[in-house]
Simulated assay, not measured.
Amino acid sequence: MGFVKEFKEFAIKGNAFDLAVGVIIGGAFGKIVTSVIDDLIMPIVAALVGKPDFSSIYFAMGKGAENIPAGSTLAKAKELAPDAAIFAYGNFITVAINFILLALVVFILVKTINKMRKTEAENPAAPAAPTATEQLLAEIRDELKKK
């Protein structure tokens, strides 16, 4: 088998194609979930906690830390005290909250889909009524069986 033919079979094979579609849909879904978290949920969390951006929370220590005025942004603190050890834990808090919210959204989505599947499995769709042609053929079959 030639290389091109073998590659074509691999690329068009159902599993590889399904995987590619899944990756593309997953990327698009990831953007939707990120938007839900960043644009809808995080502002509510920030309003409750009182900080619009956790990434600017830090603790400066060591040489030059005393030169940083209270309330300075992280970028300003790094600029004012380049030799200070800056423990920037706020970004970790933001990432951790984003992860928890992302996991919660995915959990709710999976739970909802599983519930829909379970309901669909419990209540299968009624079989469609036979068409006029099928009824006529059944009558003909029954008549032929009688003879």
Rank of each mutant, 00 (worst) to 15 (best):
E79G: 04
E143L: 11
L109Q: 02
V105T: 07
A46W: 09
N15I: 06
A16S: 09
P130K: 10
G26P: 02
A20M: 15
E120C: 00
L40V: 03
P52Y: 09
V33S: 12
F107A: 08
A84I: 05
D83A: 14
L102V: 11
T119R: 04
E66N: 07
E143F: 07
A121T: 05
S35L: 13
T112L: 14
A126M: 04
T34G: 10
F17V: 15
A96H: 00
A128Q: 11
M42V: 14
A16F: 12
N114D: 15
A60G: 11
G64L: 01
A77G: 03
T94I: 00
G22C: 10
I140H: 04
E6V: 12
I41S: 02
L48S: 06
I32D: 03
L74G: 02
P52C: 03
A138F: 07
I57Q: 07
G26T: 12
G50T: 12
K78Q: 14
K76H: 03
I68G: 03
L109R: 00
I93Y: 02
G26Q: 08
E143A: 09
I57W: 08
A70E: 14
T112C: 08
N67H: 07
Q135G: 02
P82R: 11
I32Y: 07
P127K: 15
I68F: 06
E79F: 04
A129C: 06
G27Q: 07
A103P: 00
N91H: 05
F17E: 11
T133C: 08
E120V: 01
P69S: 06
V4F: 13
G2M: 04
T133V: 13
D18G: 14
A128Y: 02
I25N: 03
L101E: 11
A60Q: 05
F3W: 05
A60Y: 02
A96L: 09
I86K: 06
A85I: 08
L137K: 03
E122K: 08
Y89F: 12
F29P: 00
I44D: 05
A128E: 13
G64N: 08
L136N: 06
K111E: 04
A81Q: 03
E134H: 08
D38Q: 15
I93N: 00
G64Y: 01
N15R: 13
I25L: 15
G26F: 12
V110G: 01
A75H: 00
E134F: 05
V110E: 07
L102T: 15
G50D: 13
E79N: 04
D18Q: 14
N67A: 14
L104T: 15
I12L: 14
N67V: 06
N91K: 13
D83P: 00
A60R: 04
I41D: 02
I113V: 15
L136Q: 10
K31E: 12
G27F: 07
L104Y: 08
I37Q: 02
G26W: 08
I41L: 14
F92C: 02
I37P: 01
K115W: 14
G22N: 09
V105I: 10
K8F: 02
S72I: 01
F87D: 03
A103T: 10
V45G: 07
F59W: 05
L102A: 15
E143G: 05
F29C: 05
